Amino acid sequence: MSVSSVDDRQRAARLLLRHPLIRSTDEERYRLVRRYSSDLEEWFEINTGWAMHADSEVVRLEREPATVADPTHPFATRRGGAVLSRRRYVLLMLGLSVLERSDSQVALGRLAEQVIAAGTAPEFAAAGFSFDLSTREERSDLVAAVQLLLEWGVLVRVAGDEQDFVHKTGDALYDVSRRVLSQLLVTRRGPSTISAQTLDDRMVAMRDRGAAPTTELRNLRLRHTLTRRLIDDPVLYFADLDDEESAYLRSQRAALCRRITEFTGLVAEIRREGIAMVDLDDDLSDVRMPEKGTEGHVTLLVAEFLARSGVAEHFVASLVAHVRSIAPDFAKYWRASALEADAAADLVATSLGRLSALRLITRTGDIVRVLPALARFALAEPTILGGRKP
């Protein structure tokens, strides 16, 4: 394979990792991924266990996370990165269930009526969920769910505007894409076939692959799990692995890292504590550091403070006090509201959320524990060279 072909295949693989569902209407991306669909399908199946579906309308990588117990990466909209509230998430799921049984076209008002009807089931009331269209906030929540469906291509707008619905001045009409809708759910088992009652038990059952009866199959699953974690997690710490995973990684580390690098362009940085697959192009991460804006700057300053402290654990209150104390020094760089008395707590909460997502710290209640990868932010005081002599 030529160098240009390898580069294009890497672009296709990275594109599919960023956008696991690509419609044929997205012509440039769709053509690139379809060109290398055989290579992509084979690599993902062998190395991650992720199935890939490609047809004349859609390409779908059935990307299962290595774990569903990580709270540091909540479901967020691509536009603006806002985390979906509990109610909006429920409305999104109800909307999908309604669309499964809808006609090929649906009006937003009709969709709303059916969502309200579906939300009256006793299970929702028992969980404290209720919904109607009496307030603008509730209509905005439904529209936020609909806009996600538009972004994914489940719905295609034919006429009208969602904001007219929010303001109660109009409606909107959509085509429903059955093909895209059928490709959204990624589970080993359908939720309706599972008898478990608790959320955790149901999540385990949906992902259950059964027992691995042979050594070969156990090793294959270990490869899948570790490759997923190396691709998905900012840092894979050796201390987080069980005995089987540790033994497999010790013997196969070079091969695993090489395969990922060759196929995605991610570069392995291997340290005593773990492995990070570094994205030199910086386009695969949903959380960046450093990042522009007040929150981005505060996150960097908090990281530097934690890394240089030499202390493994800190109270959140001490970090709030630190940010409050340095705020006047950066007044001209931060937005005005960041200098208010109660702003420091919110800024620290946002910073700690980002650092947790990047696997640089863990937070348990009011205690923050520093993880090894944070050491790279322990910057020394700058040395100015070539300054004027006294």
Rank of each mutant, 00 (worst) to 15 (best):
E42C: 06
I270G: 03
T77N: 13
G296K: 05
Q183L: 10
L266M: 07
V58H: 03
S37M: 09
E304P: 00
G119F: 05
G310E: 04
R218I: 00
G387A: 14
A112F: 05
F131S: 03
N219V: 00
V320R: 06
R288H: 14
A357I: 01
A268P: 11
Q147E: 15
R359T: 09
D283P: 00
M277Y: 04
R354H: 08
R136E: 15
T77G: 14
R271C: 05
A268M: 04
L355S: 02
A112N: 10
A196M: 09
V33W: 01
A331L: 08
L133P: 01
E64A: 12
A303F: 03
L220H: 08
T193D: 14
L222K: 08
A54V: 10
R87P: 05
E295A: 15
D70I: 01
V158S: 11
I361M: 03
L16V: 04
D233C: 07
S130H: 10
V176I: 08
A255T: 10
S318E: 14
S182D: 14
V154G: 04
V6W: 11
R179L: 01
L40C: 03
V320I: 10
R23V: 02
R86A: 15
R288T: 11
L94E: 12
P372S: 07
V186W: 07
P74F: 01
R79C: 04
S56N: 12
A66V: 09
R359C: 11
R88T: 15
D242W: 05
G128W: 03
L16A: 04
V83S: 11
V368E: 02
S325T: 08
D175Y: 14
I270H: 08
R31H: 10
W152I: 10
G119M: 09
A378W: 07
T362D: 13
R258Q: 12
L199V: 13
A196Q: 15
P390K: 13
E151W: 13
S251Y: 01
L306E: 06
S337Y: 12
Y30C: 02
L96M: 11
Q147Y: 09
L91D: 06
S177K: 05
V158F: 06
R189S: 10
D279V: 01
Y174V: 02
E45W: 13
A66M: 04
G49Y: 03
V267P: 00
P328M: 04
R354W: 01
A196W: 07
S285G: 13
R63S: 08
G293S: 05
L374F: 07
L300V: 06
A331F: 06
E304G: 00
K389S: 13
R60E: 06
T214C: 04
V154Y: 04
S325E: 14
L374V: 02
L173N: 11
R18I: 01
M203Y: 13
R253C: 03
P191N: 07
I367W: 07
L91V: 04
L379V: 06
D161T: 09
Y237T: 05
Q252W: 05
P290W: 08
L300T: 12
H73V: 11
Q183H: 10
Y30D: 01
G95E: 04
T362M: 10
D243L: 13
L148W: 07
A172D: 02
R60F: 02
